[in-house]
Structures are given as C-alpha cells and as structure tokens.
Design a protein around this nucleic acid. Structure first.
Lengths: 190, 190
DNA sequence: GTCTATAATAAGATAGAC
DNA sequence: GTCTATCTTATTATAGAC
C-alpha cells in the first residue's frame, strides 16, 4: 500500500532528524538511522536509494514543518508570531539542533544541503523584511530600513540557537529574542 | 631542532584549518591534511598523535589568533574595535568558515570541541557585556542592560557569518554589523 | 623525522534470494 | 518489502624499518 510506504518513509525521516542531531550529517550513518526504525541499512535503502536522497527528504520535511507550525501558532501580529515560534523552538531542542548542525555544515564545499540553505536564507530574509515593514513601516531605529534589519533578525535567531544549544542554562533564547524585538522598537518586552 | 618542529606543527595546523573549512571536522581526513604539507598521514601522526590532538591544537591556535588580531586592530573605543574585527573577518572567509563549521558541529553529542565552544561563548558574552557597559553605561535602548544585550551582539556576529558564507553577494557582513551597533544607539553608522 | 606495511573498522552501495 | 552476502573504498591508528 502506498499509505504504509508513506508512513515508513515518515518514520525514517524522523529517525534521520534525530541521528543527524546527535552526530551531524557526515556522522549519521544509514545503519544507525535504519536501526532506529527496526530495519537494516539495506532495508532503508529501499525507501531512499542514497544517503543524499534521505537528506533531501529531511530538508523538505523541515519546510513542511515550518508551514505547519506557523499555521498552528499564527496570530494577528507578524512579529508576535515569530516570537512564539522562538518560544516553541525552545521546547524542541532536537529539531533546532538538527538544523543548526546542518546549516553549519552546509557552508562547506559541495555540500548537498548548500543550495537549500542558500535559497532558504534568501526567502527567510525577504519574509523578515515584509514582516518588519508591516510592523514598523519604512523607518526603524538607527536609521535602518526593513531590508537592512532583516538579516539582523535572522542572524539573531540563528546565533541564539547555537548559544542556547551549547548552554541552555546560560541563555534564555526566547527572552533574548524578545529583547531584540524591543531594540527594534517593538512591544515584545514584558 | 625544536624550532623546526614548531614550524612544522604550525604548518600542519594551518593546513588543518583549511581542510576543516572545506569538509568539516568529520570530513577532514588526516591524509588530506598531511598531503597539503607534503607528508604522509603517518608522518603527520608524528606531530599530532591523534586526530583529536590536532583539533585541540587548531582551537588553541584560534584563541591565539584572536588575541593577536585584537592587538593589531586595537583602537581606543571597544565597540569600534569589534567593528574592525568584523571587517577584518570579511576578508578571511577561510578562518570564518572553519569556525562556523566547528561551532555548528560542536553542539552534537560528545563532540571533542563542545567544551571549548561552551567556555568560549561564556567568556565572549562576558567580554561583550563589559564592552557594552564601557560604551553605553548601564542603560541601553529597549530597556536592556549590557548583560542582556551581550548574547544578542554575539548572536548577530555568528548569524551574519553563516549568511555571508552562504551568499557573500547578498549579505554585507560588516555593514550589517554596523547597523546592529546603530540599533544599540552607537555611532558605528556612517 | 618520515616512511612502508598493515591492522581494524566502518561506510555507502549493489545483487539477488525470499 | 526486507533480508543476507558482498564489493569497494576510506579512515584512524599501530609497528617497525631507515
């Protein structure tokens, strides 16, 4: 059945996300992923013919997950929405870790996820600029425009994730992000 | 001679930095590093008995490099100094890439560089807080304190590096950093 | 100090049985 | 759809000659 096959694939993708979080992409062996869903390495290759095909599926799943969690936590004010996304992320270290590791890895030569992250950051910056424009208009503190603030917003989200993953006790990711929103002149601060 | 040995070790460390930038830590084989300095893999092991020992040396070299470049570009105003560090980094994609990759990798389980980055971020945040206090005093825009702005400053630097490495044409790392300084109420903006 | 030889694993992938 | 068997290639590391 194609239903069963889809379920199996979803299980495998989930397992791959976990193993990548623990050991990175290069360190994530197909055998370790397979074992987690009760398959042999060769059995897994029936669903994803190569390791790279599995990675592509993991990245595609992330995009879908983004859309879903945005819908789930959608509120009226765009920046509020981003703040709740950060709060939500703070409860899901596994996923955050997987994509922090992959994004870092992707800057290496000929990395199979490089094009994905290049494109992803481009549209994330565009989305952030739109969001900032809707929230604050054309003029932001420090003489910034939404387009110039956008890469900073994205950088803060990513950079905080690294610090938080390394030392969750020392870095309150959600609070820090609200601090940044406050810097932009928003009302994200309590 | 111990002089020759030191030179050789320095060469090897430099080669390791390059190979890690290209392929990540797990992807950086000792053979590839050795080849770059005209040695066999086994010849390299004479200088660094294990792969992990070489990584430790790479991390130690980074700390020394930090100190050196700080001295080199030191100016009177602390934040100006950081801005020139970012400008300097924008001319050295190799080093930036190595440590972006290593930092991302380090969040995985039992990674040999994990403790290093954990400590490093701790003191970098402390240093940033001191710098912000010296520059702006106790009160920053958005009701922030130096301690609360510090992780944001560090996050911006790191996050911009990822975006810049992936797409240098789309992200002007130094300009964006100056924009962030402007947000803090500084005069880093032209 | 650097090499050759080699051990010991481990990985991704293919072929083909059931 | 999943397995066993196997190929091929890499990798870290050790032993010991020169």
């Amino acid at each position: 059945m194609s239903r069963t096959t889809g379920d199996r694939r979803a299980e495998i993708i989930q397992a791959a996300v976990e193993v990548i979080a623990e050991r990175g992409y290069r360190g994530a062996s197909l055998g370790a992923v397979a074992e987690r869903v009760g398959l042999t390495q060769q059995g897994l290759l029936h669903y994803f013919p190569t390791k790279e095909a599995l990675l592509v599926a993991v990245l595609a799943a992330r995009d879908q997950w983004d859309v879903a969690s945005t819908a789930l936590h959608g509120t009226t004010w765009p920046l509020e929405m981003l703040t709740s996304l950060v709060e939500y992320n703070a409860t899901r270290p596994g996923i955050v870790q997987t994509f922090t590791v992959l994004a870092g890895d992707s800057v290496t030569e000929d990395h199979p996820a490089r094009a994905y992250f290049e494109e992803r950051y481009r549209w994330v910056r565009e989305g952030a600029a739109d969001m900032l424009r809707a929230e604050f208009g054309e003029r932001l503190p420090g003489g910034l425009t939404p387009e110039r603030a956008a890469p900073l917003l994205v950088a803060v989200m990513d950079g905080l994730q690294v610090q938080w993953l390394l030392d969750p006790a020392a870095v309150d990711m959600a609070a820090a992000f609200r601090d940044f929103v406050a810097l932009l002149g928003g009302t994200g601060n309590t």
